[in-house]
């Protein structure tokens, strides 16, 4: 059952696209960004940074919608998101 209506201007709406920046050396591997990315964009990598933590990597970067949640949750200021210039995609119903 659907509890929401389809927006009338759905054909005009575009889902924003984000570009992820991961500052690997600052990461302490808490996994907050991986856990709470609503699009499952991130995964902890096998790679080590110089502190010995596994920083995240974007496994589905094209899915990023620039919601900034990873940036807001990261306790180490190690990840941020900027709006991608092009490549916004249409909202599918």
């Amino acid at each position: 059952m659907k509890f929401w209506r389809t927006p009338l201007d759905i054909d005009k709406l575009q889902i924003p696209r984000g570009e992820l920046h991961i500052l690997k050396e600052r990461c302490k591997g808490c996994g907050f960004c991986v856990e709470y990315c609503p699009k499952g964009v991130l995964e902890l990598s096998d790679e080590f940074n110089s502190k010995g933590y596994h920083p995240p990597k974007a496994v589905k970067p094209e899915e990023c919608v620039n919601c900034d949640l990873c940036e807001l949750l990261c306790p180490d200021f190690a990840i941020y998101c900027v709006r991608a210039e092009a490549g916004e995609k249409e909202v599918s119903n």
């Binding site: 302490k28 591997g29 808490c30 996994g31 907050f32 933590y53 940036e71 807001l72 949750l73 990261c74 306790p75 180490d76 200021f77």
Partner: peptide, 10 residues
């Protein structure tokens, strides 16, 4: 690691 303080600072 996994301390919530950094998030609060953000």
């Amino acid at each position: 690691p996994t301390c919530g303080l950094g998030t609060t600072v953000t």
